[in-house]
Design a protein around this nucleic acid. Structure first.
Lengths: 204, 204
DNA sequence: ACTATATGAATGAATG
DNA sequence: CATTCATTCATATAGT
């Protein structure tokens, strides 16, 4: 049984290679840059500045070389819809409240709502619910007792209700507008609900 | 805020403990969340302030989907099942005889049988057959299209998969981390020191 | 160490 | 709804 150690220099499957670390750093850096730019933008907007003064002069955009280079415009043939974290969050919360597949009517509503957060069609929503249900069902009987370890967070099963309580509250994000340019963001994120269960990360 | 003290098993150059990885992931998640929210804010604000020109060359004002969400797939790294040679043999032979689809019942039987030779779950069996079939199918018709794809993707190492037009992705909701507000967002958004803060997160 | 390939797993969509 | 298919991701392992 190889588990992590609490204090030693355990080296095994739980470690990252430098390559991975590099990727992580890059990602963090990217987010940092973007957040910074967005924050600036926000401030400039909030302050009634006539123009985006804080922005990078080069009309290129808010983003800089670092990002541009690391992210390739993966256009391509990815026809498959992928929910945005925001969309997913909303979907989850809706799923929580009413078990069962929403009727046509409801689907349409949801789709409309979610379209604010990214491309989506009614079919996507429909499929999502279908799959969600089917899969959560299959998960029950199986104790997911994969092999030996798994002491970690297996607890994060689907049935857990850690989604945000604000069902649909997202649609109106006005409520999270910054009251003041400086504290706004903290406020925004301290809304526990907001940071709920979504996130994104990618390690490799 | 370099490393968590609770079990900061610092390992040395090149590797991190899982705890450290976890922290990083959370940080990334936080950035993602912030970016997303800010993007939304930007959009809402943009409607009131005809600005956004410097931001996006396409004059859209719509910001960034590319970054707002990144993909995920966090699979608790440590539990990837690997069939023992014995199990594999059995699986193969079963696959041979009935190339069709093992029913749910059959799956259960097989799982039970194989558990004699090592840890295994029904899901494992299910996946195995699923993959087996899919792959044997893909191998026939095309002359090695796989390598091609792989190479292409590999070129993009970081492989960001979101595109501008598409809502980016996040494909897993079952094993998610919860970004928590106490990870230093405040610092992050006090934008002046952004880069500085970032550096302090470096893990080497 | 780095790269390429094999393979377990996740999930949107399709089919019955 | 229940199953199945197709595609993609992530990791383990082999090869250079």
């Amino acid at each position: 049984m190889e588990k992590e150690s609490q204090n030693g220099a355990y080296v095994g499957r739980g470690v990252m290679t430098e390559e991975q670390m590099e990727t992580l750093r890059k990602q963090i850096a990217v987010y940092a840059v973007i957040c910074e730019q967005l924050a600036l933008l926000h401030n400039s907007l909030s302050s009634f500045h006539p123009l985006s003064s804080g922005m990078n002069p080069n009309g290129g955009g808010y983003f800089d070389p670092m990002v541009a280079s690391s992210s390739v415009h993966r256009v391509s043939t990815r026809n498959r819809w992928t929910p945005t974290s925001m969309q997913l969050q909303i979907l989850e919360s809706i799923y929580e409240e009413r078990s069962g597949t929403p009727n046509r009517r409801r689907i349409r509503e949801i789709a409309t709502e979610l379209s604010e957060h990214g491309q989506i069609t009614e079919t996507n929503v429909y499929n999502w619910f279908q799959n969600r249900r089917a899969r959560s069902k299959r998960k029950q009987p199986q104790t997911r007792a994969t092999a030996n370890d798994q002491a970690e967070d297996a607890a994060v099963t689907t049935d857990e209700k850690r989604s945000c309580g604000d069902s649909g509250g997202f649609d109106s994000y006005e409520h999270i507008l910054f009251p003041s340019p400086d504290l706004g963001i903290e406020h925004l994120l301290s809304r526990g609900e907001l940071s709920g269960e979504f996130n994104s990360y990618r390690l490799t």
